[in-house]
Nucleic acid binder design. Sequence first.
DNA 1: AACTTGTTTGACCAAACGTTCCAAGATCAT
DNA 2: ATGATCTTGGAACGTTTGGTCAAACAAGTT
Lengths: 203, 203
Amino acid sequence: MAGVKQFDKEKVIDRALAVFWQRGYEATSIQDLVEATGIGRGSLYGTFGDKEKLFLAVLDRYVEKIGSQLMAALSNPDPRRAIARMFEVMVNRMNDPGYPRGCLICNTSLECPGGSDTINRKVIEQLSSMESAIYQVLLSAQAEGLLEPGRDMRALARFFVGAAQGMAVLNKTSADPSLLSDVARVALSVWDCPGREVAGPTD
Amino acid sequence: MAGVKQFDKEKVIDRALAVFWQRGYEATSIQDLVEATGIGRGSLYGTFGDKEKLFLAVLDRYVEKIGSQLMAALSNPDPRRAIARMFEVMVNRMNDPGYPRGCLICNTSLECPGGSDTINRKVIEQLSSMESAIYQVLLSAQAEGLLEPGRDMRALARFFVGAAQGMAVLNKTSADPSLLSDVARVALSVWDCPGREVAGPTD
DNA sequence: AACTTGTTTGACCAAACGTTCCAAGATCAT
DNA sequence: ATGATCTTGGAACGTTTGGTCAAACAAGTT
């Protein structure tokens, strides 16, 4: 073998992640990526194929770096604390100026442009894997008697995912650190609610 | 005066609204708008100035047609019912196949492209006007003794806005009608919570 | 009927887009 | 050293973008 790569592929993905996260998929041009990564057009295409394939690699990286933190929080043995830690991790990261605002998965899910099925599938897969993880935590909470047996666990899991997405949206439009902790605190408080969500319509 | 318009400006805005709502601002090309509205390029530019100004008109129209329904629901004299009706209106509309998925305001708020300040300002203004309206409802609930005096009304209002945004995101990725009503039902249940959201950190 | 005023249409423009391609350079095996 | 192999960077390509413009047209006014 000869002609060895002059750059670290993982570092390039990280740089690309930062740009895609901040600007979105469509709004990020190849030129942006060239400047952000410091490598040439040819190297980008030679290494990743095309823009979409690079973005898929970036999505994987995001799940691996960011999503895994949520999953780790959810694996806390105390179910109540698992959910609480998940929100805590989210709030801390979103309020950390070192990260771009919002959530890449959330941003991408709203970038409809009939965008590639592969991308959309990956986004949906990620959201539903988060819902499953939360659902399992709730089930074990129920098994331990920490949640009333009558409560709708599926609805609760869906709600927590929805709250997380809502926080991602708010974080994109406002930098107020208290905003996210307010939302997270109230969202978590449903845990201690009388099980009203089993009822029918909203009134 | 002579040379009279051959089309209904309001109808054009409605058609443009449908396209922007479905595809997003950046992803909608002038050509898309020409085809959707049925009028020529020149007429579009002659009437609205440019793409951004047209979009601002579309945003106004959205607030007037869709946002107003939420505001109307919030004006219900019974505060508890006002919030419930707001969610009900949202769920019904989002599950109505006659409307594009998601929420134009929410979609736009995530389309960062350093997009025009005017657009961003309008989006933020709309979100904060929704929060204010909810906040006022909560205050009057508190005044009527329907909510414990110790609860954090600002946090509650922020939470309800966040939940609404989260629902918009979920609605964009899934068409399951039960999903949104699940989330809305749980979100509303915080009303009947013991006032735990006044506490400090999430655990 | 002629003129004025404004609208409509589609050709046209420069810029930016994602992608391709190739000459030049770098590294290893021999 | 020489050749083979792969990488690199930038020029170039075709397409699409938002925006402009002028000629053709329709409707009032006189």
